[in-house]
Each structure stands twice: as structure tokens, then as C-alpha cells.
Amino acid sequence: MIFLQLFSSFFKIGLFTIGGGYAMLALIRQEIVRHGWLSPQEFVDIVGIAEMTPGPIAVNAATFVGFRTAGFWGALTATAAVALPSLISVIIVSYVWEKYKSSTTVQNMFSGIRPIVVGLVGAAALMVGTATFAVLDSVSHVFWTILLAGLTFYGVAFKKWDPIKLILATALAGLLVFR
């Protein structure tokens, strides 16, 4: 039963995605190729598309694969399955957090965890930056990427520029300058 398979595969993908992002790609690939839902080439294509479209990569992959294998209801099944572990795990953790967050030990624990988040996000910036610059093939593209990245960083880190407007502006700028 295809719906059941979609559900169990994408539930598993959602459940084992911790820390987000690119670590889960290997798991998605394994599940998709194992069932023969997409060819390895199609998987590479969907990763490219997931990067170019908004939303979590897991959701993009789930919707795409679900639609390809079982149409609209397949897309909904796979998407619901990949999101369900979030709902369950956050409800449990949130309950525990609200209950204990005023205790000194938990406060101290978070004082250690918050800097970790800084380090992880910083590392993500480095990795995404490296991956982006690695595929640029002209001096002008490098120049514009540095300029747009720098402006966005300045506006969001030091001014109160709206990130959404910045994304729209950089898309427009990209249309004009990336030739």
C-alpha cells in the first residue's frame, strides 16, 4: 500500500532529522532510492529544486516524492508524515521545559546551550558561504555575491531592515546583475 509506505518512510525521515538541514539528505536519499520512488538523478534534481524553493528541504522532498508516486493525496500523506514528529516531539519537550525552566540547573544548562547555538549557526554560515562561492565562475558574480551578502548581513545584524524585503530586493538584484 503506497500511502502506508509513504507515511512510514517520511515519518522516519522527520523523526531522525535533528539539527536540521543537510544532514538529513542522506536519509531521504536512502529511503527514496530504496523504494525506487525516484532515480538517483531525479533525487539530485529535487535537491536543487528544494534549495531554490522556500520551506524546509524535508517538506519539499516529501511533497515532491508523494506527488510523483501517488498524486495529490500522496503529496499530502508524505508531507503530513514528515511534519508529525515535530508536533509530537515539540509538545513533549515544551511541556517539560515550561515545568522546569525556572530551576537553577535548567537555567545553567541553557547558559551552556545558547552559546552552542551561536557556534552552530556561525558554522552554518561558513558552510553555506563556502558552498555558494565554490560554484561561482566569474569575478563579477563573486563581487555581487559579496556585496549582496554583506548588505543583507549589515541590514539584519545592525539595522532593523525587514529580512523579507531584503530577500525580494536581492532576487530583483540577482535578476539584473547575474548574467
Binding site: V118, V121, G122, A124, A125, V128, G129, T132, W144, T145, I146, L147, L148, A149, G150, L151, T152, F153, Y154, G155, V156, A157, P163, L166, I167, T170, A171, L172, A173, G174, L175, V177, F178
Partner: peptide, 14 residues
Amino acid sequence: GVKAAVIGLIAAAA
């Protein structure tokens, strides 16, 4: 263009 913005957004988040 958006890809460049994403680098800036993540760095600013950090």
C-alpha cells in the same frame, strides 16, 4: 541573488 542574501541572513542570525 537570494543565495547571497541567505549567507548574510545566517551570518546575521549568528
